[in-house]
Design a binder for these strands. Structure first.
Length: 305
DNA sequence: GAATTATGCCCAT
DNA sequence: TGGGCCTAATTCC
């Protein structure tokens, strides 16, 4: 259930520990045997996130494209560079996994004693990327395929801008603002449309709209350009924070001590997401939950107009 | 212990 | 519109 920040962290972990290495690529589950064979034994030259998609480029130019979908995750084993203060020696990134892993930000947790390296695959491992020292297992993805360079470029071209994968934030923002304000579709749906802006999921959608005090039902065309720009700028801030922190925290009002609490208690992290019926933290009005395009939308009808 | 739910998105009908 | 992916935490008996 990852949003963009998680995929960027996965790309960072892969960049730290597997990029530049010659990898054994396999499909313990078997479903990806042909794709794995195409890139087995090659050097991984880059790992990049664009929105919620991961692109791993190998020396031949072939690209492994991965989308985690609803419950995909990467499990990492062996030698790993800590991405969080305190570090960790084994972990999962993607859907929450506690079996042998950490939630990012919960601090260090060792590999169970007696576990050998490389570890036996746990569950249905679609693809394993392995160096001598590090193993990354992909489980439960909704997309996992090998593309040629043109195919990879086309996949990226279909995505809207991602503030964490552009070198021109202002120009990327222009694209997002234009796409958001050009259609009559509700802004709450447009923010989830990965061709408008990439990486936003249901939590960031709800929180961005609350922080902008914007009614999710407002048609994109009725969203003032400067408000659309605020959404882009705020998305860039929240995404960068999520990448560093390892989880989504949008309550900039929290004091430092309360932020520590929010590390352990996910119910403290958001203004409206998953707070249906609870009082809005600003107005006291019960937070509303409703369906919008088959997803749950949380919002405050008093604050968001 | 069973049923439900979830940070997503694709496809078939 | 419904099922699929193939998972684990949470909620409901």
């Amino acid at each position: 259930m990852p949003e963009g920040h998680t995929v960027h962290r996965i790309a960072r972990q892969l960049t730290q520990d597997l990029v530049g290495r010659r990898l054994a690529v396999s499909s313990p589950q078997g479903r990806f045997a042909a794709g794995a064979a195409r890139i087995d034994g090659q050097v991984l030259v880059a790992a990049d996130a664009v929105g919620k998609q991961l692109f791993c480029t190998f020396e031949s130019g072939d690209v492994l494209r991965v989308h985690l979908g609803l419950y995909g995750a990467w499990d990492f084993y062996g030698s790993l560079t800590p991405l969080v203060q305190g570090g960790y020696s084994a972990g999962s990134m993607g859907a929450p996994r506690l079996r042998r892993a950490v939630r990012m930000g919960e601090g260090e947790r060792d590999v169970p004693v007696g576990e050998v390296f490389p570890p036996e695959p746990v569950g249905q491992v679609r693809v394993r990327l392995a160096s001598d020292a590090t193993v990354a297992d992909l489980r439960g993805p909704s997309a996992c395929e090998v593309l040629d360079p043109a195919g990879a470029a086309a996949a990226i071209e279909r995505l809207g801008p991602d503030p964490a994968s552009t070198d021109d934030l202002a120009a990327a923002g222009d694209v997002m603002v234009h796409r958001l304000t050009s259609r009559n579709v509700a802004v709450g749906q447009l923010l989830m449309d990965q061709t408008v802006v990439a990486g936003i999921g249901n939590i960031y959608r709800a929180e961005l709209l609350f922080r902008a005090r914007l009614d999710p039902h407002t048609p994109g065309r009725r969203v003032p350009t400067d408000v659309a720009r605020v959404l882009w700028d705020d998305w860039a801030v929240l995404l960068a924070d999520g990448i560093e922190r390892g989880f989504i925290l949008t309550r900039e009002d929290l004091a430092e001590a309360q932020r520590e609490e929010a590390v352990a208690d996910s119910t403290l992290r958001h203004w409206v997401y998953h707070r249906a019926g609870e009082p809005c933290l600003v107005s006291g009005t019960p937070v509303v939950v409703e369906d919008m395009a088959t997803r749950k939308l949380y919002w405050c009808p008093t604050c968001q107009v």
